[in-house]
Nucleic acid binder design. Structure first.
Length: 590
DNA sequence: GCCGTTTTCGGCCCGACTGTTTTCAGTCG
């Protein structure tokens, strides 16, 4: 079992307990453990081998036992027993926004509703509205929630799919006579969510590959199985497709199965215009002679283009840019020198202390680290007094570190519903890094939310707008605001927009990154870590930025601390619009 | 279920908001 499987079982356990009237604090314990494990990059099986499971926050002796049971047997008996009492469709109803355990339990017990379709029917025919504390407006709200839910279902977050795909790749690479194995599809393009896993293998002997794939322990059900194409459903529910081709076709097949659809159509059309035929087996001339196809470079070269990074292959101008020689030199994770949004245990629900964060940041080669705990309005957030003490302590510690890494005293300050900031401006102005974020009143209308954010940016003390859209993948849609106007205010006041690398946020989105690039507003790629293990999540943010065509020069935390401070010091509020990001990053030490 | 400078029992965030009510229930962050 992978971490994601354990997290899913614990989260489901929380739901089951809640629906069957379990102890609410026990519910919360399961839910917290599930959330933590889901974000944990290190495999639980490894921690278990080392006897370190109970070192994880929110995992005590009991949950460690349950994890062990799952790792050893693949099941969790207590969960399975409870799950027999609750139909899966009843659990699914909890995924609807604004529908909680009480409403689901009521609909289930009183009306016998067992799934989302049944709930929808009961909303339409008035049965739901007749229940106590429900009514016509609630029923309408639930219908809207069902529509939004249907719109986003069927896709899996990248960070759930990627480890499963990588495990399969490792398995297939061990099969004899296999030349190459690669992930293709939207997973290779690093989309924030994927529909399925596409794997491509190059070999002259397909039989053993197909057998290794369909017989893998991760596989729950074989949906189709032939010599060159197999489809399976994994235990977690995700579908995986395998294609097997000869090595001479590998590049053409990799390109074809990487997509996206619009990109492929555009490239094939280009081939046709040049009297060529392009398919998954290679590039061919009019007489059917093979011109290439063993590598992707050969495919692109045959149609007169340089290789295009997978993240750009969406058919949104990348062919034209390749033709013109203006493809971006995309930012890489190695370009990032520091992390500007990190929580410590000084506030909030974060679990790691500053020393542990510093240690891990040093191990990852970060040159600077901004500790940005929550402000007053968040639960256990810091008020002005405690924050000032916290900042003083961080600066004292920074002196002892001698730049390994540099420690910045910062804050993630709430943007209150009226656009004012949650702490006094004098205090904020004295900090090294101020991230301002919306954490409340998400329902505000477009105009109100836009003005709220812009007002915060105009305060003159904000360095970074944190997770600008507020979306949570698969859970919460972005709130409504005018990105263009926010970018205009950001440019005017020298504020960078964050690409939050928490894999369930990825906010700015890839598209919004491209809009920010066009507006000449720099971004920062930050981990929003709540534990040391989150610091390595920056790669997810880098992929999102790459999908948004961003180069290192457009990402502020590719700069040295000295350059960063210079960028923040000058010019605040004046001149930024005329001269966005004028100097490239260098490797000079601060 | 977890957790511990109030430490092995007893507490665990709590207020805003919405829709339902006429003082409250449920959901969310």
């Amino acid at each position: 079992m992978e971490n994601a499987d354990v997290a899913r079982v614990f989260a489901e356990m929380a739901d089951l307990l809640e629906l069957t009237g379990g102890n609410p604090f026990k519910v919360r314990a399961y839910r917290q453990a599930a959330q933590f494990i889901e974000m944990l990059p290190e495999p639980l099986s490894e921690l278990w081998r080392q006897g370190r499971l109970t070192e994880l926050p929110s995992v005590g002796a009991r949950l460690a036992d349950h994890i062990q049971e799952m790792l050893v047997t693949g099941h969790y008996a207590e969960h399975d027993q409870l799950a027999e009492r609750v139909p899966p469709g009843v659990l699914e109803m909890l995924r609807l926004e604004g529908v909680g355990p009480k409403t689901v339990a009521l609909a289930w017990k009183e009306l016998g509703i067992q799934d989302v379709a049944g709930l929808e029917a009961a909303c339409h025919d008035g049965r739901l509205a007749a229940l106590p504390h429900l009514g016509r407006r609630r029923a309408e709200g639930i219908l809207h929630a069902i529509q939004r839910y249907e719109a986003r279902r069927g896709r899996t977050p990248l960070h759930h799919a990627l480890p499963q795909a990588e495990a399969l790749v490792e398995r297939l690479r061990r099969v004899p006579k296999v030349a190459r194995v690669e992930v293709a599809g939207s997973l290779r393009r690093r989309r924030d969510t994927v529909g399925d896993i596409d794997l491509l293998v190059a070999t002259l002997e397909p039989g053993p590959v197909s057998r290794a794939f369909t017989g893998a322990p991760e596989v729950g059900q074989v949906l189709a199985s032939g010599p060159t194409k197999c489809t399976v459903r994994l235990h977690g529910g995700l579908q995986a497709d395998l294609r097997v081709v000869a090595p001479v076709s590998f590049g053409a097949a990799l390109h074809y199965f990487t997509g996206g659809k619009a990109h492929n159509i555009a490239l094939r059309t280009r081939a046709v215009h040049r009297g060529l035929k392009l398919n998954e087996y290679g590039v061919f001339d009019r007489k059917g002679r093979r011109l290439g196809g063993a590598t992707e470079e050969e495919v692109f070269r045959a149609v007169g283009l340089p290789w295009i990074p997978p993240e750009l292959r969406e058919g949104e101008g990348e062919l034209e840019a390749a033709e013109a020689g203006t493809l971006p030199d995309l930012v890489t994770v190695e370009d990032l020198l520091g992390d500007l949004h990190v929580h410590s245990d000084a506030s909030t629900d974060a679990r790691s202390d500053v020393d542990a964060l510093v240690h891990e940041a040093r191990r990852l080669g970060r040159r600077y680290l901004a500790i940005t705990d929550h402000s007053r309005s968040r639960p256990r957030g810091l008020a002005a007094g405690p924050l000032a003490l916290h900042a003083a302590e961080l600066r004292r510690k920074d002196k002892t570190l001698r730049g390994r890494p540099h420690l910045l005293a910062g804050v993630e300050v709430d943007i209150l519903p009226d656009g004012t900031l949650d702490l006094p401006l004098e205090l904020l102005a004295a900090l090294d890094c101020v991230v301002a974020s919306v954490h409340s009143a998400f329902h505000q209308g477009r105009e109100e939310m836009t003005e709220r954010i812009c007002r915060a940016l105009r305060s003159g003390v904000v360095h970074v707008l944190g997770h600008p859209s507020g979306r949570l993948l698969g859970t919460r849609d972005a709130y409504d605001f005018d990105l263009e106007r926010v970018l205009e205010a950001a440019r005017e006041h020298g504020v960078a927009l964050e690409v939050n690398a928490m894999p369930d946020r990825l906010d700015l989105t890839d598209r919004a990154c491209r809009v920010a690039k066009a507006a000449g507003v720099p971004v920062v790629i930050s981990s929003d870590s709540h534990h040391v293990s989150h610091l390595s999540n920056l790669r997810y943010g880098v992929w999102t930025a790459r999908r948004g065509w961003l180069e290192a020069s457009e990402v502020l935390n590719t700069r040295t601390l000295q350059q960063l401070r210079h960028a923040w010091l000058h010019p605040r509020g004046v001149g930024r619009a005329a001269a966005p990001i004028s100097y490239p990053p260098t490797d000079a030490h601060p």
